[in-house]
């Protein structure tokens, strides 16, 4: 993959220093090509939001401490950028949309003012009410001329999220990072916002990194998926193969534990136990205490992530033992 828009290489990030440091990310590698939709999936505490925030260096340091690795954005390492370089990146090349639109908008400024603010910084020539109205229309807000004058509390949650997306689009970003953008919204509104993001991605050709815990959204939306567990990426794959033939036992267990509409199963396959606490990962494979098929090897050596099939990587000792030469149908050791 020569021309990655975003390339994270072996990023290790800790909170705090010295002996009390908690390692939130452990050698995370992830890439997003121009125009691609990548989903980063994981449960709470897996490190997916920290990964997202680290890209434009939004985590305050301290307590965050970038230990090693690179975050290349169009070839430039954001870890080496000066504060003023970072300011042009943030909300410029890279825009964010967060989970709680009500918390992300400033309650004492009008929606229009806040969108214009973003234009003033990144597209000063077009910081006009007309452009703001155009952006609001682009994200599907009807009668944008009146909405410009509304305060955030005067509009619904779904519309607030649309306004956030409009603000993110103001700078014509190459990469939109959406961190659980629909989790706080109702089902029918969630369908609206996902549909909107898909249309925008197609029409504007930007790449999207979507952070979610909802595997259903993955199947609807993603080209590629990375699954995180306890601060590590445990599997990356294209979306279709991941959902059909998950390679990592965690991915498989996660898929099995979701109730499916119309699948009258009697019992859900739950994953026993809980996610390890941050900074206290079990030895060896971090998933092994909860894994249904773990073998003694799993608790000994931390497995590396390895490309076991074309464009599919997995971090699982059972795959690494003798994986490479096999074919997809017969490879499944699980």
């Amino acid at each position: 993959m020569g021309e990655a828009l975003l390339q994270i290489d072996n990023l290790t990030l800790e909170f705090g220093r010295g002996t009390s440091a908690l390692r939130a990310l452990d050698r995370v590698s992830l890439s997003v090509a121009p125009g691609e939709v990548v989903c980063l999936v994981g449960e709470s505490g897996s490190g997916k939001s920290v990964t997202a925030l680290s890209i434009a260096r939004l985590l305050p340091t301290p307590p965050a401490n970038y230990r090693s690795g690179r975050i290349l954005l169009e070839g430039q390492d954001t870890l080496k950028m000066t504060p003023s370089q970072l300011r042009t990146i943030r909300g410029g090349k890279v825009s964010y949309v967060f989970q709680e639109p009500g918390m992300s908008l400033n309650p004492v400024l009008t929606v229009g003012y806040q969108i214009k603010e973003s234009l003033k910084l990144h597209q000063p020539a077009s910081a006009t009410n007309n452009e703001v109205a155009r952006l609001l229309k682009l994200v599907g807000i009807s009668s944008p001329e009146t909405r410009i004058r509304n305060y955030p509390h005067e509009i619904s949650g779904g519309m607030q999220q649309r306004a956030m997306i409009a603000m993110a689009l103001a700078s014509r970003p190459k990469l939109l990072i959406a961190d659980e953008p629909t989790t706080a919204l109702d089902a029918t509104i969630q369908a609206q916002i996902i549909g909107l993001l898909r249309d925008l991605q197609r029409d504007l050709g930007m790449a999207i990194l979507l952070i979610t815990h909802n595997l259903g959204i993955v199947s609807d939306f993603a080209d590629r998926v990375a699954v995180m567990y306890s601060g590590q990426i445990v599997e990356t794959s294209n979306a279709r193969d991941l959902l059909r033939h998950p390679l990592h036992p965690y991915t498989r267990a996660l898929l099995d534990s979701v109730p499916k509409l119309g699948a009258q199963a009697n019992r859900l396959t739950a994953i026993p136990g809980t996610i390890p606490r941050i900074g206290e990962p079990p030895p060896g494979c971090r998933f092994h205490p909860r894994c249904a098929i773990s073998i003694p090897e799993c608790s000994r050596e931390p497995p590396a992530i390895d490309e076991v099939l074309a464009n599919r990587s997995v971090r699982c000792p059972r795959w690494l033992r003798d994986s490479r030469a096999r074919q997809p149908q017969s490879t499944d050791p699980l």
Partner: peptide, 9 residues
């Protein structure tokens, strides 16, 4: 019901 995302790609 149609808003429930399906896992079937």
């Amino acid at each position: 019901i149609s808003a429930v995302p399906s896992l079937d790609h």
